[in-house]
Amino acid sequence: MSAPAPTPDISAFLASSVHDMKNSITILIGGMEKILAAADREGPEYRELSHMMYETKRINGNLIQLLTLYKLGNHLYPFSPEDWLLDDFIQETVSQHQPLLASRGIAFEVECEPDLIWPFDTDLVGGVVGHALNNAIHYTGSRIRLVARRGAEGLELRVEDDGRGYPQKMLDDGVAAMQGVDFQGGSTGLGLYFSAMVARMHRNKGQTGSIRLENGGAWGGGCFVLNLP
């Protein structure tokens, strides 16, 4: 009889392969940004390359979300809320999407209350807003706006587009849709689940953060709303 195989330490594998994959993704994105910067904006490669960029960022986003969820579940994620000037935060988050927005000719605007400061975990919230922006880029008609303002429930971050909006079923299901996986619908549910979890981690004086989907906003399209207490 052979000796039983040693139990693999999944977390060690996860950590080492993510480290490895992140290097690959950095090199992919770095290479694509370099080619994009030099490419002819009117040529067909430009559009193709920018699509590759979009897909690469999706892979990256999913990877981060999976790993973060794993860590959150095991209480291993170093949650670290810090004060952020919303202007800085938005500039940094949007900078990740600028090449894609430009290549698709999507008009982008930011409406941010000046000097607004709020404490949150920038890596987590950056992931949530980045995911929402990526979605909006996919579903919008021609423009996207990002709104940061003080609301009744604390800080309100909104990503609005001028597309056809969310299907009625998704709006009806509301929070329930954020918990499950719908393989038929083409959505893994990961992004919303992650966003809801990140929102809930932000707490203050008995209040908890939340996310919401709605149609409307400035242009009647889809709106993703994140509230942080």
Binding site: K22, N23, I25, T26, G30, S95, Q96
Partner: peptide
Amino acid sequence: LIKPITEATLRLRLDK
């Protein structure tokens, strides 16, 4: 900074 690092992120962070 968490990978991937892009020019824009790095520039903004260093400025800050």
